[in-house]
């Protein structure tokens, strides 16, 4: 869920923005250090890809439809720091073009969807044993659930939603989204493995 402006109080806004900047500043530094001229258009097009993928509706077996985040997927393909910058720019674009999320809630939204999916998600992907599908599915599921939990906590601390109903409601919704995110992430990676295996071996920064 993209938190709009006005839903978070000042303390939560400052705290989430602080954590996000603490992750984003080293990410920018790491990416800059190894930014080849060829990498610039790749990052731009990959960001456009993530943005477009976030607009597509994915059907849920049993009814309704959800939207992907794509943070774990893009981090597995291009690396965690590149993934974080791509997710950040996609969220900025969502806020500017469609008002999905606000300006001062960007910190919280990047924390919920980018820092979790890209940094924690990629970390989990690296340490998990087993085959590619398993190592991709677990972080995709867990990080999406975590983004719902974070969202409920932030809104709870802001006094916007009570923990008693907000936390279970958003965790359940995020779990459904997470299952779809995991299935989609695994299917996309296995498709790439079959059609363009070279794209799974791109430089990861």
């Amino acid at each position: 869920m993209h938190i709009p402006d006005g839903f978070l109080n000042l303390t939560t806004t400052v705290a989430t923005t602080g954590i996000t900047l603490g992750a984003l500043v080293p990410a920018v530094r790491k990416v800059n250090r190894s930014l080849s001229p060829k990498r610039v258009p790749l990052m731009g097009l990959s960001a456009a890809f993530v943005f477009t993928a976030q607009l597509l509706s994915f059907p849920v077996p049993g009814g309704t439809s959800v939207h992907l985040v794509g943070a774990v997927l893009i981090s597995i393909l291009l690396g965690p720091y590149t993934g974080l910058i791509i997710t950040t720019t996609a969220l900025i674009m969502q806020a500017l073009l469609f008002q999905h999320g606000g300006l001062f809630s960007l910190g919280a939204n990047i924390l919920n969807m980018g820092v979790t999916g890209c940094l924690l998600g990629y970390g989990l992907f690296r340490i998990l044993p087993g085959n590619l599908s398993f190592r991709a599915a677990v972080p995709a599921l867990i990080m999406t659930v975590l983004s719902g939990v974070f969202c409920a906590l932030e809104l709870g601390f802001s006094g916007t939603t009570p923990f008693k109903t907000g936390l279970p409601a958003m965790t359940i919704a995020a779990t459904i989204t997470g299952v779809v995110e995991a299935i989609a992430t695994v299917s996309i990676l296995s498709l790439l493995g079959k059609v363009r295996p070279d794209l799974l071996k791109l430089e990861k920064v």
Binding site: P41, L45, A48, A53, S57, F58, V60, L68, R196
Partner: peptide, 28 residues
């Protein structure tokens, strides 16, 4: 079948990434 539709949407998204990558190469 929503299950099949979900798989097909994933294929579409995967192909979209391949095309984005190829376009990035051409742009470069």
């Amino acid at each position: 079948s929503n299950w099949e539709k979900l798989k097909l949407m994933s294929v579409i998204t995967g192909i979209l990434f391949i095309r984005s990558y190829e376009r990035a190469e051409r742009v470069y």
